[in-house]
Structure formats: structure tokens, C-alpha cells
């Protein structure tokens, strides 16, 4: 067999080998389970109630984790992978709403509510304590004649 012929034969064999090895081996940059989990934990499992893609045992979530792994392996940054899901499902897919526009209500309302509650309690407590400090029990308006009569009857004994 001539050398030229050998070379002509070698080329397709080489292509075949490279092709086969590309299928046989895992992707060039292996993606850690942590990296997949970090993205999956931020996404809502679409067929569940209140579960993330990371926590759900459903087949859909498992397929989504596979897609996350593939995209990370292809060199996408976690933020890009998340955006891929947002583009298809809307922001609904995010477990934590993004901080902009109307979404701020969700983030700030609990803080505002707690702050208002604390302020209200503080105001009420101060009002109560001030009243007590200002001289024991609240004075009752009794006319002098009546109070004199009560004193006399007390002294006399029942």
C-alpha cells in the first residue's frame, strides 16, 4: 500500500475515531453537581407546588437539571442559563422575584409591615408607661363632701 493511499485511508478513520470518542467521553469541561444545583435551586419546578427544580423528584425537573448541566458544560454562565428559562417561562419560573418595578412590593412590603408593627408597639408601650409614671392610679373625681363621708365611715368601722 502506498503512503499516499494510506494517508487517504487514514483521514476518514481519524474522523470516525474523533467522532466516536466525542460521543463516548463526557463533555470537555465537567460540570460539578454543585454548579447544577445552584442554578436548579433558583428555578421553580413547573409541575410541582412550591418546589425548586433542585428539590423535585419529578421527571420534568430531572430533564431540566439535564438541560442546565448541558448548558453549563457548553460554557454558559449560570445567569445565562437562568435567562434561558426566563425567556421561555417568564419570570414566574424564578423562585425569588427579580428586584425591579412592581416586584419591589414583594420585597419591601414585609419589611414595611414589620417596621410599622414595631413602631406601633413602641408608641403604645410608651403611652402606657408614661401614664403610670405620672402618679399611680388615675385620680377619680369625687366631690370633697363625698370623700369626707367615705373617710369618716371607714374610720368608724363597718
Amino acid at each position: 500500500m502506498s503512503r499516499a493511499r494510506l494517508r487517504r485511508l487514514a483521514a476518514p478513520v481519524l474522523v470516525l475515531l474523533v467522532g466516536v470518542s466525542a460521543f463516548a467521553q463526557p463533555p470537555a469541561s465537567p460540570v460539578s453537581e454543585d454548579a447544577v444545583h445552584e442554578v436548579a435551586a433558583q428555578l421553580r419546578c413547573v409541575v410541582c407546588q412550591s418546589l425548586s427544580v433542585a428539590d423535585s423528584p419529578s421527571e420534568m425537573a430531572s430533564q431540566m437539571r439535564g438541560i442546565i448541566r448541558e448548558r453549563l458544560a457548553a460554557g454558559e454562565r449560570p445567569a445565562e442559563v437562568i435567562q434561558y428559562f426566563v425567556d421561555r417561562y417568564g419570570e414566574w419560573i424564578l423562585l425569588a422575584p427579580r428586584r425591579h418595578g412592581f416586584n419591589w412590593l414583594v420585597w419591601l412590603f414585609p419589611l414595611v409591615a414589620v417596621a410599622t408593627g414595631f413602631t406601633l408597639v413602641a408608641v403604645i408601650v410608651r403611652r402606657w408607661t408614661r401614664r403610670r409614671r405620672e402618679g399611680g392610679p388615675t385620680p377619680v373625681n369625687v366631690d370633697p363632701a363625698m370623700s369626707e363621708r367615705i373617710r369618716r365611715e371607714m374610720e368608724r368601722g363597718a
Binding site: 421527571e59 420534568m60 430533564q63 431540566m64 439535564g66 438541560i67 428559562f85 421561555r88 417561562y89 417568564g90
Partner: peptide, 9 residues
């Protein structure tokens, strides 16, 4: 693999 499902949301 579920890629088409996710592509279509």
C-alpha cells in the same frame, strides 16, 4: 430529553 418542552415553556 425534554429540550423541546422547555424551549416551548
Amino acid at each position: 430529553k425534554g429540550t423541546v418542552s422547555v424551549d416551548y415553556g
